[in-house]
Design a protein around this nucleic acid. Structure first.
Lengths: 150, 150
DNA sequence: TCTTAACTTCAAGTGAGCTTCAGATCAGCC
DNA sequence: GGCTGATCTGAAGCTCACTTGAAGTTAAGA
């Protein structure tokens, strides 16, 4: 088949994404397919990039909903080009930086913090890393010099 | 109540973990409680540390099953001390390092890779970061200098 | 033409990690 | 003793991201 259109099996083989997942993505509005005379899915090569984008975006931590939203910003009037995709994924940068920073904090504080009483408090930055208020406000007690609980 | 034993509400308040989740953890064998005469759960202060450990371990990416397994290595004969917990969490270090490295690779290659044709191939390291064979074997095509697909 | 692998749909199932609900009981305080 | 909020159990429900199954159809190669 492989000239201009791809069957679901070919897309599956080339993206390493199961046919069932591709059908699921279609049902969720993430990818699109035309149909053969007999009703089988026929994909434009473009879908390979979309599927790959989905997989990478998932690794970045995006939900399928967020990914659909992100892809909605691609140009509809023409096939998205390299720069369109690159622009889209550059927007992940802050998110990635944040995630990396979180993991590094986790790693670097592990030794000093895990065993201490502060872990039993809801204000600890390790336990509630997303809690900005606690991080800059009340603050992790072990950083503020409060005695551990026990 | 707060002297030596804690009610489920108190544990919930202090760990910011819902009572339903605490019951669930108990049913999964992750934490333990004694009972009052009337049958209500009574927790030893120790449970605060266990619950906090569970939450932090989840952030590191462990499943509840792995966490249960990890905690099984804690001494049963005595209340685990700071060093016991610290030792346990130090074992996360390689895992954290690995995760951080993965995200950094992702971040650093994003610009050069996302838009390129290699993303449609199953060998791309961004798409299949866990695939050791492809990473060191066939290798990401964009690194090997193959022309992009389109 | 025949064969058969690949494809179709729709509904139901999976697994992780909980939450919600209903109806009943418990515990702390006046 | 009585009130009221906290807690109990067990079953069912939920979200996410898919997979599986059944029963039937299509399409590519000999």
């Amino acid at each position: 088949m492989s000239q201009d259109v791809l069957s679901i099996g070919e897309v599956s083989d080339r993206t390493d994404v199961a046919p069932s997942a591709l059908r699921f993505y279609e049902s969720e509005g993430l990818i699109h397919a035309t149909r053969s005379d007999g009703g089988q899915r026929r994909y434009h090569r473009d879908v390979l990039r979309r599927v790959s984008f989905i997989r990478v975006a998932q690794r970045v931590g995006l939900s399928l909903g967020e990914i659909r939203e992100a892809m909605a910003s691609l140009p509809e009037s023409r096939t998205p080009n390299k720069e369109d995709w690159a622009k889209l994924s550059r927007s992940w940068r802050p998110r990635l930086d944040e995630q990396i920073a979180l993991l590094e904090r986790l790693r670097d504080r592990l030794d000093g913090c895990i065993g201490c009483g502060c872990l039993s408090l809801r204000v600890c930055a390790l336990v509630n890393p997303g809690d900005e208020a606690s991080a800059s406000g009340a603050g992790p007690r072990y950083l503020l010099g409060e005695p551990p609980e026990r």
